[in-house]
Amino acid sequence: MIETLLDAIGQSAVGTFIAENAVAFPWIEVAHVLSIVVVFGSILLVDLRLMGVAGRDYPPLALSRTILPITWTAFVCAAITGALLFTSNPYGYFENTAFRAKMLLLVLAGLNMLVFHLLTMRGGRVNDGPGPLPVGARVAGLLSVSLWLAVIACGRWIGFTMAPF
């Protein structure tokens, strides 16, 4: 089942083009890295506020509202470019440990964000004013920074543990 899917992806017009074109992979990778950079940098702003490390006079919900659209836009770009890179060598990526670890970390980062939004923010436990936030918010911020740093490291390790195509 999975082999059929990987074969279909690898033999698709997009996959073949990215694997065979001399400049497609590097340009898509440039866009992918830039997108990840914006995802990490923008989410770090929110995480530092949650942890109470920086920007403590910026209302946390207002900060989330102004920064997270940037994060989500960059995340969508990262997901699209990442999927395109995957099509160039689906078997190679699928069997790569760093790639699998990156995907797992992304799921964990998403779950951390979901739990934080559902339990802490929607539960009304975050006061939208200046000053420190509850322990749950600080833990969510720390987890988020750690997970995204690990995502970047795994992304880099992919490049060192397999040929792109």
Binding site: L34, V37, V38, F40, L45, P59, L63, T66, I70, I152
Partner: peptide, 28 residues
């Protein structure tokens, strides 16, 4: 990896300042 994380700090700073200048983000 550390290099990319630091690029993120520098680039996001420039991006948010530019977006604030254009009044698209960070209005508080």
């Amino acid at each position: 990896s550390i290099h990319i994380a630091c690029v993120a700090l520098v680039f996001t700073g420039a991006l948010i300042v530019a977006l604030r200048g254009l009044e698209l983000a960070g209005g508080h």
